[in-house]
Simulated scan of single mutants.
Amino acid sequence: MFVFEWDEKEEREALLEAGKTKGKLEILKNIMAKNNWPAERALEFMGIAKSQYNQYISLLQI
């Protein structure tokens, strides 16, 4: 028997966070393209914490 517990609040928060990340990625791509900047410079410009750079850069490559 399989028991599954679903937390609606947790799911909603995860979806909101995913949407924010997707939006930031689109902004990041636009900044990079318009200014001919590398990802690191665009992330710095956006105010993204350096500890998150690798996360965003890896998502750009997907």
Rank of each mutant, 00 (worst) to 15 (best):
I62S: 01
K50P: 14
I48L: 02
I62T: 01
S51R: 15
A18L: 12
I57N: 04
L25D: 11
L59I: 14
F45W: 11
W37N: 06
A49N: 14
K34W: 03
F2L: 14
A18F: 09
L16T: 02
I62E: 07
A33M: 03
F45A: 09
T21F: 13
A33D: 06
N35A: 10
L16F: 09
S51Q: 12
F4E: 06
L59H: 15
E10D: 07
K20E: 13
S51I: 14
W37E: 06
D7R: 00
E11K: 03
E26Q: 12
E44Y: 14
K34V: 11
A39T: 12
I27E: 13
I48H: 02
N30A: 14
R41T: 11
A33Q: 08
E5R: 00
A39R: 10
M32A: 03
E17D: 13
K9R: 07
G19F: 05
F45N: 05
K34Q: 13
L15C: 05
G23T: 07
R12H: 01
K9S: 01
A42W: 03
K20V: 07
E17V: 08
W37A: 12
V3H: 10
N54R: 11
L16D: 03
L59D: 13
M46C: 00
K29C: 04
E13S: 07
K22W: 09
N35C: 04
N35V: 02
D7A: 01
K9V: 00
A39E: 11
E10M: 02
G23L: 08
E40T: 08
N30Q: 14
A49I: 02
A18C: 04
Y56I: 09
A18H: 07
K20R: 15
E11S: 02
K50V: 13
F4T: 02
W37Q: 04
K20L: 14
N35F: 12
L43I: 03
E26S: 11
K9Q: 05
N35D: 09
M46P: 03
I57G: 03
K9A: 05
Y53T: 08
A42G: 03
L59F: 10
N54V: 08
F45V: 06
G23R: 08
F45T: 07
Y53C: 08
W37K: 07
P38M: 12
L43R: 05
P38H: 11
I62Y: 00
W6S: 01
K9D: 01
Y56C: 10
Q52Y: 10
I57A: 04
I57H: 08
P38W: 09
W6C: 01
G23F: 06
K20H: 11
E40G: 00
A42P: 02
L43P: 04
K50M: 10
Q52D: 15
M32N: 07
E13R: 12
Y56G: 11
F45S: 07
A49C: 05
A33T: 04
E11I: 02
Q55W: 06
Q61R: 13
F4W: 01
G47E: 07
E8V: 00
A49K: 15
I27L: 15
A14V: 02
K34Y: 08
T21V: 15
W37V: 04
L25Y: 12
M32I: 01
A42E: 02
P38I: 13
S51W: 05
E8S: 00
K20F: 10
E13A: 13
L60K: 12
W6I: 09
S58F: 05
Q52R: 15
G47T: 07
